[in-house]
Amino acid sequence: MRIFARYRILLPVVSLAVVLAATFYMQPRAMSYFGINLLFNLAVPIALATIAQMMIIMVNDIDLSLGAFVSLVACITATFLSDSPMLGVLILLALVLCYAALGAVIHALDLPAIVVTLGMSFVWGGLALFILPSPGGASPGWLRALMTVKPPYIPMAVCASVIIALVTHLLVIRSGIGTVLRGVGGNARSVERAGWPVVRLKALAYGLAGLFGVFAGMALVGLTTSADANIALRYTLLSIAGVILGGGEFTGGKVSPVGAVIGALTLTLAASFLSFLRLSPDWQIGAQGAILILVLTARLLFTRRDAEA
C-alpha cells in the first residue's frame, strides 16, 4: 500500500518535471526568476479552480458550472469588490453559501449533480452577463499588489502553488474532517451509519469548493486587472483534467490536493511549452489533448506495474 501511495503522487511530479525540463531545453532563458514567474503566473487561478473541482469530485459528484462560477466571481471582483469592498465581500460570501446550499439540496433530494451544476452554469453565466455586459472593470489595488508581489529567490507563482498545496493537503488529507469528507466519497452510507450528518458534510464540501472558486476568480482578476463574463469558461474542463492528471479518481473519494495543484501547473506549462515548440497554432489545442492522453497512458502503465507487484 505504501508503494501504491508513493506511486500515485510520483507520476504527477514526474510529468511536471518532464514538461518543465523540455521547456527549459527549448528555451533556456526561461530558467530564471522572471521566466518561471511568467510561465506559471496564470497557473495560480487554475490551481485554485482545480482544488475547487477536487472538493466536488471528492464526494463523488462533478461540477460543470465551475468555469461560469469563476467568471461570475471575476466580474464581481472587478466591479463591486473594487468599488464598494463591503458589498463585494458580502456578495462573495453569499455565493459561497449558495454553493453549500446547492450541495445540501443535491444530497437531500438525491439529484444528479452533473445536471444541477449544468443548470447552475446558465445561472452563473447569466448573472455575470447582468453585472458586466461588456468586458471591463478594474482590479482592487490590494489584489493586484498581492498577485504581483515579488518575494526574494522564489517567484510568487511557485510560492502561491506551494502554499495552496500545503493548506489543502492539511485540510483534506491530514485533518479529521477532511478524512470524513473523503469517506463520504468512499461510502456515504457507512459514514451515515457511523452517525455523521451526510447532508451537512456535502454542504461543507460544496461550500469549500465555492470558497476556492471565489479565490480562483479573485486571483484571476488580480492578474488580468479586468474581467468579462466568459473569462474563465474553459476552467470547467481544465479543472476536471487537472484533478485526474494529479492522480484523482471520479469515484471513491480518492483525491490528492498536492497532485491536483501539480496537475494544474502541468496543464498551464504544456500550453507554454507548445508555443516554444513553434508548433503551428492550428495544432496547439490538439497537442494539449495529446499530452493529456500521454500522461494518462503513463499512469496506466504505473498502476498496472503496481498491481503486479
Binding site: I62, I244, D282, Q284, G286, A287, G289, L292, I293, L296
Partner: peptide, 27 residues
C-alpha cells in the same frame, strides 16, 4: 479505443480526444 485500451474515464477520454478533433477542424 481510448476508453477501452487505455481504460480512461469516458469524460476525460472524450474531452482529450475532442481537443485533437478541434485541431483537425481548425487545420
Amino acid at each position: 479505443a481510448l476508453i477501452f485500451l487505455l481504460r480512461l474515464p469516458p469524460i476525460i477520454a472524450t474531452l482529450a480526444a475532442s481537443l485533437v478533433y478541434q485541431s483537425l477542424a481548425i487545420w
